[in-house]
Amino acid sequence: MNAVSGTWVEIGHLSDIPRQGARCIIIGEHRIAIFRTQEDELFALEDKCPHKKGPLSQGIVHDGCVTCPLHNWVISLKTGEAQGADEGSTETYSVKCKGDVVLFDLSCVR
C-alpha cells in the first residue's frame, strides 16, 4: 500500500524513473505522467497531449519539455502549455521529492 500523509502520497522512488524519462501513475480514471529531467527535477502532467491525446509519458524529454510521440507537439513540463505555434494545454499536478521518495499531491485530482 502507499503511505498517505495529508494529500501527499508516496508513489515510488526517484531512481524508479529514468533521467530524461517518465513513468505513469494511475489514479482512478486518470493516468498521470511523472517526468524526471536530466537535472532530477520532477514534473507531473496528465498523460494526454492537448492535440490528439497522445501519451506524453512516451515522448522524448528535453529542455524542460516533452515531445509528444504521436505528432511531435512540444509541451512544457512545468505549465503543460504547447510550445511554438501550437495552442493547447495539458493539466499539471504537483509532485515533489523528499530524499529519494517521490510524493504526489492528490488534492488536485478529482
Binding site: 498517505v4 494529500t7 524508479d16 524513473i17 494511475i26 504526489f104 492528490l106
Partner: peptide, 15 residues
C-alpha cells in the same frame, strides 16, 4: 521492466 509497469496505482478515496 520499468517501461511496462505504471509507477503506482492509487486509490483516490485513500486520501
Amino acid at each position: 521492466k520499468h517501461e511496462f509497469q505504471p509507477l503506482a496505482k492509487l486509490n483516490l478515496e485513500a486520501a
